[in-house]
C-alpha cells in the first residue's frame, strides 16, 4: 500500500508520542478500575478478583454517607442540567435567530466567558456573592452555582446545532400557516433536540463531577459525591473509593456514548 507523502503517521516520533499520551491519559484510570476489583484492602497489592468493595460502597460503614452524597449529586445534576439547558436553549434562539443586534458579539462573549475563567476564581466569587447577600449555604447554593456555570456548557452544543438549521424551515412553517409559537415548537425545537440533549448531558456530567465550586459554596455537613470522595480520601485511599470512582467513570462513559449517538441520529434528519 502506498503511503501518502505527508501522512502524519510517517512523521518521526509519531508512535512514541501517541503511546506516551495514551499512557498518561488512560493508565491511571485503568489502575483505578482494575484495583476496584481487588480482593485485598491494599491499593497496591493484587490479591485476586472480588466485588467486595462494590458491596462495601452500598452496605459498608461509609455507605450512608455515600448514599446521601450520591442522592444530592444526582438531584442537583438533574435540576441544574434541566434549568441551564432551558436557559441555554432560549439564549441560543436569541443569539442565532435574533438577527444582528447591538452587542451581539459581547453577548456571545458573556455567555462563553465562564468557560475561560479559572474555576477557583468563579468559586471564590460565588462564595463571596452568596455571603454578601446573606444567602445561607446549603444544597440550594450548590444548585444555584451549578445552574450558573452549566449554562455555557449547555449552550455550546445547542448553538452549534442551531447554527446548522437554516431559517427557511421556520419560514416554511410560517408560510404553511403556523403561528410563531407553532413554528418554534413543531419545527425548530424538534430539529434542535439532538443539540439540546447533548447540552443537557454535558451540563449533567459537568454538574455531577464538579468539585471546586461545590466545595466552596456547600454548607457544613452537605456533601455531593465528589466532596464526599475527597473527604474520604483525606483519611487515606481505600479500595471503596476506587469502586465509587469506577462507577462514576462507567456512568460518564454511558452518558457520553448516548450523547454521541443522539447527535449522530440528528444528522440523519438533515436534508
Amino acid at each position: 500500500m502506498a503511503t501518502r507523502k505527508f501522512d502524519v503517521r510517517s512523521y518521526p516520533g509519531f508512535l512514541a508520542i501517541t503511546v506516551l499520551c495514551l499512557t498518561i491519559l488512560y493508565v491511571p484510570l485503568m489502575v483505578v478500575a482494575v484495583y476496584s476489583f481487588n480482593a485485598s484492602a491494599s491499593i497496591v497489592v493484587w490479591e485476586g478478583f472480588s466485588l467486595r468493595w462494590y458491596g462495601d460502597v452500598f452496605v459498608g460503614p461509609e455507605s450512608t454517607k455515600f448514599k446521601v452524597a450520591a442522592r444530592n449529586s444526582f438531584v442537583i445534576a438533574i435540576i441544574a442540567a434541566s434549568v441551564s439547558t432551558t436557559i441555554a436553549t432560549l439564549a441560543a434562539t436569541a443569539m442565532i435567530r435574533g438577527g444582528t443586534f447591538r452587542y451581539r458579539t459581547l453577548s456571545f462573549g458573556l455567555i462563553s466567558l465562564p468557560l475561560m475563567v479559572p474555576e477557583i476564581v468563579t468559586a471564590v466569587a460565588t462564595l463571596i456573592f452568596f455571603n454578601s447577600i446573606g444567602f445561607e449555604r446549603g444544597i440550594l447554593t450548590i444548585l444555584l452555582a451549578h445552574i450558573a456555570f452549566c449554562i455555557p456548557f449547555a449552550y455550546l452544543p445547542i448553538a452549534a446545532r442551531m447554527q446548522g438549521i437554516e431559517d427557511t424551515y421556520e419560514q416554511a412553517a410560517r408560510d404553511l400557516h403556523a403561528t410563531k409559537r407553532q413554528a418554534f415548537t413543531k419545527i425548530l425545537l424538534p430539529l434542535m433536540m439532538p443539540g439540546i440533549i447533548s447540552g443537557f448531558l454535558l451540563a449533567f456530567i459537568i454538574s455531577l463531577d464538579d468539585f471546586i465550586i461545590t466545595n466552596f459554596v456547600k454548607g457544613a455537613g452537605v456533601e455531593t459525591l465528589p466532596t464526599a470522595i475527597f473527604g474520604a480520601v483525606k483519611q487515606g485511599i481505600k479500595p471503596n473509593i476506587m469502586a465509587i470512582s469506577t462507577m462514576l467513570l462507567a456512568f460518564s462513559i454511558v452518558m457520553v456514548t448516548i450523547s454521541y449517538f443522539v447527535s449522530k441520529s440528528g444528522e440523519n434528519n438533515k436534508p
Binding site: 437554516e166 419560514q171 416554511a172 408560510d175 430539529l191 438533515k270 436534508p271
Partner: peptide, 20 residues
C-alpha cells in the same frame, strides 16, 4: 398580515422540507 394569515403558499428554492 403575517405570513401564516396570508392565503398564499411558497415552494422554497431549497424546498425546506421538514427533515424530521
Amino acid at each position: 398580515l403575517p405570513p401564516n394569515k396570508r392565503p398564499v403558499n411558497t415552494v422554497f428554492q431549497n424546498y425546506a422540507l421538514f427533515p424530521h
